[in-house]
Design a protein around this nucleic acid. Structure first.
Length: 279
DNA sequence: AACCAGGGAAGAT
DNA sequence: ATCTTCCATGGT
């Protein structure tokens, strides 16, 4: 279990193989952060945290420590999860590479919007688009802008998304926001089994199987899903060389069958280590 | 079934 | 320096 200390405006995590800021922020699950000379600035909904990486440990300076204890999932026992996953031989190396990953508990609406933008897109552009949406429509706070509330998102014209270079996702965003404002019961997702929730999420335009899995894992902390993108496909083909190319959905289901409730964690270790070219 | 939609990073030449 | 590929979904 991760050890950390808390004061009024700071969480201090002594150096540990259960937490690493870089690995956690750069494993593809989150876009609203930037690097600084000392670490990172992280923005989520209407909160901001300054991450200071030191030899002795990581400082998370913020206005609401409880919010970020939850956000960084500090109360979950990752040592236990990793121990269980290590039983799979081909996960060992990936866990050695991404040992300090945590799965962030992000806001559902922010996650839905972010991952509709993320589809068929690259990270610098995704970050820029989300930033622009926040700076134009998010509440102005101390040195940054909040992610817009759903009520505020509803007022954004489709043309705005076109203008800020969302490409053909402009219509996906506009249409999904309208649906989220009426005719879509986001609360229902917590009560649904993941497969059912995945299907339900695809009723939103621009949300397919992969994006739905991302939303479930990052926005609802449903860990029995396995977002399967091009990097995961590469990992799969490395492990199981074959002349048969399997579809993303086949690979996804195979991995979920293998890792069960720990699928989401396994996906993060594999994705990160492959992206870093260390597997 | 196959292809295109808009955009820009990243790899290839 | 310029060309090509890549990316996840929905629609034709």
């Amino acid at each position: 279990m991760l050890k950390f200390t808390v004061s009024e405006n700071e969480i201090f995590i002594p150096t540990s193989n259960e937490f690493d800021a870089k690995q956690t922020l750069e494993c593809g699950q989150v876009f609203r952060f930037k690097t600084t000379p000392f670490g990172y600035e992280v923005y989520t909904l209407n909160h901001k945290a300054t991450i200071i990486c030191q030899k002795s440990g990581t400082k998370i300076v913020c206005d609401d420590v409880n919010y970020f204890i939850n956000y960084f999932d500090l109360l979950t026992d990752y040592a236990k999860i990793k121990q269980e996953l290590r039983k799979n031989d081909f996960l060992k190396k990936a866990i050695d590479v991404g040992y300090g990953i945590r799965i962030l508990r992000q806001d559902p609406i922010e996650t839905i919007i972010s991952f509709i933008i993320s589809q068929n897109n690259n990270i610098p552009r995704i970050k820029k688009i989300i930033e622009t949406i926040c700076s134009e429509y998010g509440e102005k706070l101390d040195g940054y802008n909040a992610f817009p509330t759903l009520e505020k998102l509803k007022t954004i014209p489709k043309q705005f998304f076109t203008d800020i270079k969302c490409g053909y996702r402009d219509d996906y965003l506009f249409s999904s926001i309208q649906k989220l404002c009426g005719g879509f019961d986001i609360e229902k997702i917590n009560k649904m089994p993941s497969n059912e929730a995945n299907k339900y999420l695809t009723e939103l335009k621009g949300v397919g199987n992969k994006v739905a899995d991302c939303i479930l894992l990052y926005g609802f902390h449903k860990t029995d899903v396995f977002p399967t993108d091009t990097w995961i496909k590469k990992v799969y083909n490395d492990f199981y060389p074959s002349n048969k190319t399997k579809s993303a959905i086949q690979i996804r289901n195979e991995f979920v069958g293998l890792f069960g409730d720990l699928s989401g964690f396994a996906q993060q270790y594999l994705f990160y280590s492959k992206r870093e070219n260390l597997i």
